[in-house]
């Protein structure tokens, strides 16, 4: 079994893990944002959606949570490993650096990733662990956990809303490179479908990110109240 460690410790092995976990996080984001659009349907829809997630059979919520810890954990570990190797591969930088075709997003992946990670920790502390900016416990008239009011109260604070919006835009930016880069890393590069895989996944990433931005905006302007 030594080969597994050697395989994933290689540059390409680490890149496969980066791409696969990136794809996992991307798919999770799509589901997570789509579910949260229940905020637009009102308190009943949002709270019943939250209750459904919490009461999924076979402990599915916890299985998903553990899965996500692995997905994000491996993505972060591989990012550290690969970025460190990349930095050490060029100890002396160019006096006059220049870029021909690399996109800004592709060149700032470690930075945008780091900001998104900081946001992720805040987001968990805010809405999952509920240890910052949470004024609860909140229970709705049916006796359910009142997630709707929690999100509403959270996003009514402009500073928090702005941070969420900025983070979602950075997620869209991060995905504008990541969501197409993962195909190349996994060896999927073919003229037949290159146009599709280099445009559709980043575009969907932007759509999902903007849907994420729409929730705090809707709260701030009073569409959700």
């Amino acid at each position: 079994m030594v080969w597994i460690g050697q395989f994933f410790n290689s540059s390409l092995g680490a890149k496969y893990l980066m791409a696969l976990t990136g794809a996992g996080a991307y798919l999770f984001l799509i589901g997570h944002i789509l579910g949260n659009l229940n905020m637009f349907l009102g308190a009943d829809a949002m709270n019943s959606y939250a209750l459904t997630l919490k009461t999924l059979p076979f402990g599915a919520l916890w299985i998903a949570r553990i899965g996500l810890v692995f997905v994000f954990g491996i993505h972060i570990l591989m990012a550290i490993k690969l970025t460190r190797a990349n930095k050490s591969a060029r100890p002396v930088s160019y006096s006059k650096p220049s870029t021909v075709q690399a996109s800004l997003a592709s060149r700032t992946m470690p930075l945008t990733g780091l900001v998104v990670l900081a946001f992720l920790i805040f987001h968990l502390a805010h809405f999952t662990w509920r240890i910052v900016a949470y004024d609860g416990p909140l229970i709705d008239t049916s006796g359910r956990d009142d997630v709707y009011t929690m999100v509403l109260q959270g996003f009514q604070q402009p500073v928090i809303s702005m941070f969420y919006m900025l983070a979602m835009l950075l997620v869209g930016f991060h995905l504008s490179h990541g969501a197409k880069s993962m195909f190349q890393t996994l060896g999927l590069n073919n003229k037949k479908y290159n146009l599709l895989i280099t445009t559709a996944p980043p575009l969907l990433g932007w759509v999902v990110a903007l849907l994420g931005v729409s929730i705090p905006i809707a709260v701030l302007v009073g569409i959700i109240s």
Binding site: S88, V100, Q101, S106, R107, Q184, N189
Partner: peptide
Amino acid sequence: GFGNCTNQYECEAACPKGISVEFIA
């Protein structure tokens, strides 16, 4: 001690022989 490809394709642009990043895939 080389670094790792992050699919930015600067190599393809710089290659005097125009080697395609398809080969990296």
